[in-house]
Simulated scan of single mutants.
Amino acid sequence: MKIGLFFGSFNPIHMGHLIIANTMATSTDLEQVWFVVSPQNPFKKSNTLLHEFDRFDLVSRAIDDNPILKASDVEFRMPKPSFTIDTLVRIQEKYPQHEFRLIMGEDNLAQLPKWKNYEKILEYVGIYVYPRPNSRPHEFKNHPAIQFVEAPLLDISATYIRQQVQAGKSIRYVVPEAVEQLIRLKKFYL
Rank of each mutant, 00 (worst) to 15 (best):
Arg136His: 08
Lys186Gly: 14
Phe10Ser: 04
Ile91Phe: 06
Arg132Val: 10
Trp115Met: 14
His17Leu: 07
His98Glu: 14
Ser82Gly: 13
Pro131Thr: 04
Tyr173Pro: 03
Gly16Asn: 12
Met24Ser: 03
Arg55Tyr: 05
Gln163Leu: 07
Ser170Arg: 01
Ser38Asn: 15
Lys44Leu: 05
Val89Phe: 10
Gly126Lys: 02
Leu5Asp: 13
Leu190Glu: 08
Leu122Trp: 03
Lys186Gln: 14
Arg55Glu: 04
Lys80Cys: 03
Ile146Phe: 01
Glu106Thr: 11
Gln40Glu: 02
Gly8Leu: 11
Thr23Ser: 07
Ile91Met: 11
Met15Gln: 14
Ala167Ser: 15
Phe148Glu: 01
Ser9Gln: 13
Phe43Asp: 12
Lys186Tyr: 03
Phe35Tyr: 04
His138Trp: 00
Ser72Gly: 02
Lys45Met: 08
Val179Asp: 04
Glu123Pro: 14
Met104Asp: 07
Trp34His: 10
Asp155Thr: 08
Tyr173Ile: 02
Pro152Met: 11
Lys114Glu: 09
Gln32Gly: 05
Phe35Gln: 09
Arg172Val: 05
Asn22Cys: 11
His51Leu: 14
Leu122Ser: 12
Ser9His: 04
Glu119Val: 04
Gln163Thr: 02
Glu99Asp: 03
Leu50Glu: 14
Pro79Arg: 09
Gly8Phe: 03
Asn47Cys: 12
Asp107Thr: 07
Met15Arg: 15
Tyr124Val: 05
Pro81Met: 08
Leu49Cys: 05
Gln92Glu: 15
Phe35His: 01
Ala167Gln: 15
Phe140Ser: 06
Ser60Cys: 13
Ser82Val: 07
Ile85Asp: 04
Leu185Ser: 05
Ser157Tyr: 06
Leu109Ala: 07
Gly16Arg: 09
Ala62Trp: 12
Gln92His: 13
Asn134Ser: 15
Gln181Phe: 06
Lys186Asp: 04
Pro96Asp: 00
Gly4Ser: 04
Val89Pro: 06
Glu52Thr: 03
Leu154Met: 09
Glu150Asp: 12
Ile63Asp: 03
Ile19Val: 09
Leu154Arg: 10
Met78Ala: 07
Glu99Val: 15
Met78Tyr: 07
Phe148Val: 11
Lys80Phe: 13
Trp34Tyr: 10
Gln166Lys: 05
Lys2Val: 10
Ser9Gly: 13
Arg162Met: 02
Asp64Ser: 15
Arg55Phe: 01
Asp107Tyr: 02
Val175Arg: 00
Lys44Ile: 09
Leu109Phe: 08
Ala71His: 14
Phe140Arg: 11
His51Tyr: 07
Asp65Met: 07
Lys120Asp: 15
Lys94Arg: 15
Phe7Glu: 01
Ile127Lys: 11
Asn134Arg: 13
Met15His: 13
Phe100Val: 11
Val165His: 01
Gln92Gly: 13
Arg55Met: 06
Arg101Cys: 12
Phe100Leu: 01
Pro137Glu: 11
Asp86Pro: 10
